[in-house]
């Protein structure tokens, strides 16, 4: 690139374009304001807005989160921590689930990583606090009694693992358990 040309372009030939652009800017005085006067005026958020994070439940009101740690691994600021545990029937759920919203950047990677649609970002950003400690959300603050954006999905209906109320072979696209002792072809 010829350095000269650039220099000439701006300094010599475009005196009038500079004045023109100043004039155009000046004219913006008479344009409509774009500002939304929040909080008197509310913002319209789309359904895919990445705001507050919630943990949802499946259609049978069971916790969707199975404690697989993928959200935590995907989190670029490492603000999710949890511990998986199991109920007596082998169903996994998080023993604790903590999001430090003072670190969260609302990137939505956790939602993308979640294999069970448990963790979801919802269109709500009004979560300011005067005390930073209050931005640490525990499971009780995160878990909602609904399915969120993905109604109808139940991970355990497709997973091979047997849990209370769903034995081996009862998931979708599963044949009944093999009888190991059978000699039939």
């Amino acid at each position: 690139m010829d350095n000269r040309l650039l220099t000439m372009d701006i300094t010599e030939t475009n005196m009038f374009s500079i004045i023109q652009s100043m004039w155009l800017t000046f004219l913006h005085m008479f344009h409509k304001r774009e500002t939304i006067q929040y909080p008197e005026e509310k913002v319209k958020l789309t359904t895919r807005w990445r705001g507050r994070i919630v943990l949802t439940r499946d259609p049978d009101m069971g916790e969707r989160c199975v404690g697989c740690y993928l959200c935590a691994a995907a989190c670029p600021v490492d603000c999710i921590s949890l511990q998986a545990t199991e109920d007596e029937h082998g169903r996994r759920y998080p023993e604790f689930f903590r999001i430090n919203f003072s670190r969260c950047i609302f990137c939505g990677y956790c939602e993308e990583a979640c294999p069970t649609y448990a963790i979801q970002l919802i269109p709500d950003f009004e979560m300011g606090e005067y005390n930073r400690q209050n931005l640490v959300y525990e499971k009780k603050d995160l878990l909602i009694d609904g399915q969120g954006k993905y109604p109808g999905y139940n991970y355990y209906k497709v997973a091979g693992l047997a849990i209370g109320g769903k034995d081996k072979g009862e998931a979708e696209h599963e044949s009944p358990p093999v009888d190991v002792k059978s000699l039939l072809p």
Partner: peptide, 12 residues
């Protein structure tokens, strides 16, 4: 994972 959350319950 979880570096900024694992101890956040004690202090943020």
């Amino acid at each position: 994972s979880g570096r900024t959350a694992m101890l956040a319950n004690i202090s943020v």
